[in-house]
Amino acid sequence: MKSLLATLALTTALTLPGLAMARPVTLTTTLNNYGGDGAYLALYVTDASGAYVGSLWMAGGKSKYYEHLSDWYRATGGDTAQVNGITGASVGAGRSLEITLDLADALFDAGYTLHIDAAVEDMRDSPNEVAVPLTTAGAGTPVSGRRYIANFSYDM
């Protein structure tokens, strides 16, 4: 996780709004028992106008499957440099993914939205499985996903 900040600073705009101020944020994603193989998840942020800002995490190591994370793929053009160094294993049905990142303070209460795209082999792609506005008030409140994600929350 230590290299994350540097990576994000290099590859995305996530730290630009307030370079100095950042805090650790824990993102917890728990999956349903949907009865399929491990899910690929892309966690990324869009701004108030819906434009892609940067990626936070990619669960799933085979880039040939990224096109099934269709909103993320369309926003980034499938650019794996967006998730360089912030890629982990896919998440099995019923399992949880917990990641802790240093996120810029300026991302909160400023109209940014965190999205999760999900995809499972031989099952339906589920872009925008979760879309949750980043607010300090919303921290710790679980949000349920549409198909594969039982709930998601961010804590700081």
Partner: peptide, 10 residues
């Protein structure tokens, strides 16, 4: 294993 340039183009 991404050894082939056969990725999808959208």
């Amino acid at each position: 294993f991404d050894l082939l340039p056969d990725g999808g183009v959208l």
